[in-house]
Amino acid sequence: MNRHLKIAFMVAPFLVVLGYIGADFHHENEAAKTKIVQLVPEGHCDIINQSCVLKSGDFKVEISDENGITGINSTFPLDSATLFLVDKHDQMTPYPLGMQKSPYYWRSNTELHSLIGQKGDSYKLRLIAKIKGGQYISEFYTQTIK
């Protein structure tokens, strides 16, 4: 091994560390930018029967309602989550969800169960889920099929 190779092998670890710092800096900058991503329902959405999943890539949000308590469960931890019930006149009623034990689970009492408790009932909803550096938004319908 000649002296040039020795020097190159000695310099390489510093470049690797420099690269690691640069990559970390780049990722932090990217994460700080506010991104808005739209979630779409995965198949039919029926919140009353615990069958409603919204997704975008690896991020999934499951929405369900049990006895008037509407909750969401996400694959990534959330900073906050707000569910909006949208009536026929496009008037929204916001329901800021409260965190349950961990930032993966959020819930709140809503009017949803009384509005769409019967088979065939449907309702328009909107969801805003805030996550570090971004917002996941969705407008979707839930329809009770059972």
Binding site: N2, A12, L15
Partner: peptide
């Protein structure tokens, strides 16, 4: 790529040493 670069640099510098009659 980094490993390949190290050996490529070493080989190129060897040639340069010969060209300019530089010794270790």
């Amino acid at each position: 790529s980094f490993l390949a670069l190290i050996f490529w640099y070493g080989a190129k510098m060897n040639k340069l040493d010969k060209k300019y009659h530089v010794k270790d």
